[in-house]
Nucleic acid binder design. Structure first.
Length: 139
DNA sequence: GCCAACGTTGGC
DNA sequence: GCCAACGTTGGC
């Protein structure tokens, strides 16, 4: 079971909009980068991902799960997309500053490759951020 | 709004 | 197949 992080500009697609889709979820589109696409293709149904807001917020705000694996992006079928549904909101959003300040998260892809829009996380990183976000030992 | 970092493209 | 040039992303 792998863990992921999905980045979005809140102006383009926000956590609030994601939540509004409920359990049926929504298509995660707009991937136009090869490494991101490779990660996207590795995502399996049921796996969880953090939802990160770029731009002004720069924080992980919630958790989504994969409900449909890679299929053609309906906005550009030469690329891929997945479907995700909101699982839960983080009681406390985890900001980029907090992530950068934590020595244990120094190796995180978010810190090293800020531009990659679909990123893998290690189990340890996932657990640390869940705790920072106020979810205790939930994973 | 600027600029650094990175990914992609295209000429050789 | 290398690498310079260019475009885009995203933090500051």
């Amino acid at each position: 079971m792998a863990y992921w992080l999905l980045k979005s500009e809140p102006e383009e697609w926000s956590w609030a909009e994601q939540v509004a889709q409920g359990g049926k979820g929504a298509e995660w589109t707009g991937i136009r980068n090869f490494s991101a696409r490779n990660n996207l293709r590795a995502m399996k149904k049921g796996e969880q991902a953090f939802f990160y807001h770029t731009g002004k917020e720069r924080a992980i705000v919630g958790i989504v799960k994969v409900i449909a694996e890679a299929h053609p992006d309906s906005t550009d079928t030469t690329w891929g997309a997945i479907d995700v549904a909101a699982v839960k909101k983080l009681p406390t959003p985890v900001s980029l500053d907090q992530i950068k300040a934590d020595k244990r998260l120094k190796g995180m892809v978010l810190v090293r490759l800020a531009r990659l829009s679909v990123q893998p996380l290690t189990d340890a990183e996932w657990r640390i951020i869940c705790q920072m976000g106020g979810l205790g030992s939930t994973r």
